[in-house]
Design a protein around this nucleic acid. Structure first.
Lengths: 185, 185
DNA sequence: ACTAACATGTAATCTGTTACATGATTGA
DNA sequence: TCAATCATGTAACAGATTACATGTTAGT
């Protein structure tokens, strides 16, 4: 997911590491952290793989900034990450939200919709079998612990919000189909 | 968080590793994974720290099971993890939900409520500053990308569901105070 | 006969964290 | 002058993953 965020933000325009780090941290909301020890080695890895290029700006004020640009290969990799997120990433709400944050970078409208449909299928799948109930239809019915009931209620509300938005968005995409849904070239 | 889940489930009764792994995976919903390579080394670590004890059951059928019991020190550690979750854990919805799953293990009612109040404060804090807006009050107002709008909408719905439940639960706790809120001894 | 589930573990590798090092600029 | 913010990095370590090794029992 870190590669996705790095490439996703860089696809919008070049940045230097410090600003990139700030944006990635804001994406997860305030109080989220991304250490330099995570970002800079990741950038070195991506540069080695030819997905980004770092150019030292000879501004000479303070430590020299490095302007980071995404390459064509980097864009292709970003599209690939958006097109085929892992099962794990599609199953986690937070990871899916991060995919959503960059989904408009994927040029093909049909491919974007396929990602939404895949998430919708996961959310619609047989009621999330909370906990170790072999007997009951689903945990909510047998659970008595007030905190676990809260947990189930909050998770259910999030799930419903996601389903509603996905259904609405896919319905609109359906009616728009053939007009201007695709920005690929 | 892994230690919390291990100790949390063991606090309900002894288990062997395989069953413990199943429960931890179900907690995160279907399709979540916990590899053996994560669980068993973690159990070894916890045993070394004196928080759990593993006893080989001489059942002799198949690979011998190991019954895992939580120790008094393990219970104390669980209480500590529940009493003082890290800022990071309290800021993430998923991590907070996992704390909720085991919160009833914390014997002191006032301490349990303090955890809920702490989460409520984080959720009420100055509107989650999505993205890199220095100018606008908050991102939702200026965002035009439909997927980012969806992201914001889903996150907002989850946040509201959490706030509602927390407020209700704390209100009930208030009226019950002095009756039977504390199970500590 | 084969597959799935039960059951515990190790090794190599990857990824991330914390803590540190370095140093300029801006505002109180 | 002192703290905060900008800016890039390294080193030691912790934690998790994937893939493998080993073997039984129950159902098709």
């Amino acid at each position: 997911m870190l590669d996705l965020k790095i490439l996703g933000f860089l696809a919008e325009g070049p940045l230097h590491g410090y600003e990139l780090r700030r944006r990635i941290m804001e994406l997860d909301g305030p109080s989220s952290r991304l250490s330099e020890g995570t970002l800079y080695p990741a950038l070195a890895r991506l540069e080695k793989a030819g997905l980004i290029i770092r150019t030292t700006e000879p501004g000479a004020r303070g430590r020299p900034r490095k302007r980071i640009d995404i390459t064509a290969a980097g864009r292709e990799r970003l599209h690939e990450l958006l097109r085929h997120p892992s099962e794990t990433d599609m199953s986690s709400m937070l990871n899916f939200l991060h995919i959503l944050a960059f989904l408009s970078q994927l040029p093909n409208a049909a491919e974007r919709e396929a990602v939404l449909r895949r998430r919708l299928e996961i959310l619609r799948a047989p009621a999330p079998a909370f906990f170790y109930d072999d007997e009951a239809p689903h945990r909510a019915a047998t659970e008595t612990d007030p905190y676990r009931l809260g947990m189930i209620r909050i998770a259910a509300a999030s799930r419903r919000a996601e389903i509603t938005w996905l259904e609405e968005t896919l319905a609109v995409a359906q009616t728009t189909a053939g007009h201007a849904p695709d920005t690929s070239h």
